[in-house]
Write a protein that binds this DNA or RNA. Structure first.
Ligand SMILES: NC(=O)c1ccc[n+]([C@@H]2O[C@H](COP(=O)([O-])OP(=O)(O)OC[C@H]3O[C@@H](n4cnc5c(N)ncnc54)[C@H](O)[C@@H]3O)[C@@H](O)[C@H]2O)c1
Ligand SMILES: NC(=O)c1ccc[n+]([C@@H]2O[C@H](COP(=O)([O-])OP(=O)(O)OC[C@H]3O[C@@H](n4cnc5c(N)ncnc54)[C@H](O)[C@@H]3O)[C@@H](O)[C@H]2O)c1
Lengths: 256, 256
DNA sequence: AGGCGCTTGTGAAGACGTGCACAAATCGCG
DNA sequence: CGCGATTTGTGCACGTCTTCACAAGCGCCT
């Protein structure tokens, strides 16, 4: 965490472009830009200004320019950015030049939806294997893939070069599954189970918890309600007034 | 956006506890604490120290204490926090004292999984209505709820007091659905479609894009690979070495 | 060739979030 | 009743992120 960055590892005039270490906030936005760029490319645009791309990605244009400047500035002043070139750049930085293989563990309610989702292919990923512990599910075919028993993970991980593991099991099983994934060499995990995973250093975990998203929205609903209620009447009547916009203070577009 | 906050709207000694306006980062962590607290309560704990709760929620204990201090400090020095009391406090602040009604629009692949998920009830939410535009899906029963045509949204929104709208339609339909939701008074939206929504001020949107999560993980995979490859050999051979943990530099636990 | 309008890239300032370290408060026990 | 062990709440310093504002660069038009 509090590691100093080496004072003398700048350009490194070697052959490889030498990944600049981007701010984490920038990394989280690059995929957004990439999606917007693909839309623009499909619409026939060859170049785009920072203002235009920022609008399409839903961010401030200064922020976008600073983000892009971190990865080497492929824009032209007075003109904008070359869409195709920028797509290549971002895809390279994100490591999407070859399609990454994803292993999905837990083919239940949610796992089925993920396994059947066609949209991942266009974003750089290939669901390479499905696993479950329930023997009655093993053997089922989903979208051309067979569900295998989780015990086969080591063998399959060796065959396919698994890059990312996705956990969609119930929470009590998630920690054990994470350990199995780490044991076969997986160093990136996307966790849908509502629990914290502990993993060794060097393993990245990202978590998606839909209930948490709803609860954050609930907080803002609660706050909006208490703001409109109090200044108007004495504070007791809680009749929702779904017409007038609330205070122009307290803007939206909350933490992304 | 760049709204100043009024310099003189502090305690407001009114009857209502007067929601403190929490830092957004704190709001995003409260649900995590809440989940951990429920686990502790189920395990029979009556009190918990900041250290213990922080461990269960996967955060720094100082951060946890500061977060909790923002909502009024219900801890006892030398002892810790009363689990049941803290649960009540957080649920109140998050607006979960009464179960919030959620409307789900788009009952396809993903929408089915969400509609069938039993876990929302325990986290303060009730899926109150399902909508789809495909007439061949309308009428289908999922988990005791009937799928209605999206045209019925105004009528149903009036009956059930819809608090949050969830969009699980394809991206091209999402903006139109968002506008329909806003039109019936919904001011909080959770969007699963990979696109930006533009909504009026006063409406909160949160977005869940699974492909983005994978792409962020992909970036870190890419970086880890280029870090292990370069210092070892000259820099050309890119054979993945899935054994030794990478550099103890560049710690994990990336942006939550 | 020169000037003009447009757009990028970035310095600087401010807002925000984090984590250490410690004083203040509380409990239990002798 | 007092003392020590324990744990909260927070002041402070530091790092990260955001946003403004503008100089530098580019292309086009005359
Ligand atoms: N379905 C949703 O919409 C939704 C929403 C939010 C969160 N989640 C979370 O996602 C996870 C999955 O939800 P779900 O609705 O698909 O649950 P589910 O019960 O339908 O599916 C879980 C699957 O995991 C399998 N499994 C259990 N233990 C396993 C193990 N050790 N190894 C491999 N597979 C194992 C089960 O056999 C089952 O097929 C849960 O943690 C849930 O809380 C789901
Ligand atoms: N399935 C996944 O795992 C997954 C993963 C990531 C993202 N997503 C995104 O989630 C969204 C839904 O994915 P899906 O796989 O369920 O797609 P899907 O095509 O299976 O389902 C979409 C549903 O929305 C309905 N619909 C279309 N237009 C509508 C409208 N105007 N009003 C109401 N309903 C409408 C369709 O009839 C269909 O039932 C997509 O935007 C997708 O990109 C899904």
């Amino acid at each position: 965490m509090s590691q100093h960055r080496h004072p003398g590892v700048p350009g490194r005039a070697g052959a490889v472009p030498a990944l600049p270490d981007l701010p984490e906030a920038t990394v989280a936005r690059l995929p957004e830009y990439l999606r917007a760029l693909h839309n623009l490319a499909d619409a026939g645009h060859e170049t785009v200004s920072s203002e235009g791309l920022a609008g399409a990605a839903g961010v401030n244009s200064a922020k976008l320019r600073k983000d892009l400047s971190h990865l080497g500035s492929y824009g032209t002043r007075g003109v904008g950015y070359d869409v195709a070139l920028l797509i290549d750049q971002i895809e390279f930085v994100l490591g999407l030049t070859q399609r990454r293989a994803v292993a999905l563990v837990g083919v239940g309610n949610l796992g089925h939806a993920l396994a059947g989702y066609a949209g991942f292919a266009g974003r750089g990923f290939r669901i390479a294997a499905l696993f479950d512990a329930d023997t009655s599910r093993v053997g089922e075919m989903i979208n051309g893939l067979v569900v295998r028993h989780v015990d086969e993970l080591p063998r399959v991980a060796a065959e396919e070069a698994i890059s990312i593991g996705v956990i969609a099991t119930p929470a009590p099983a998630a920690q054990a599954v994470a350990e199995q994934l780490v044991a076969v060499g997986v160093t990136s995990i996307l966790n849908f189970a509502p629990c914290v995973l502990s993993v060794p250093d060097g393993v990245d975990v990202r978590k998606v918890d839909l209930a948490i998203e709803l609860q954050i929205l609930s907080f803002h609903e609660h706050r909006k309600a208490s703001l409109t209620a109090l200044p108007a009447t004495g504070g007791s009547a809680l009749t929702a007034l779904p017409g007038g916009l609330t205070t122009p203070d307290t803007q939206e577009a909350i933490g992304t």
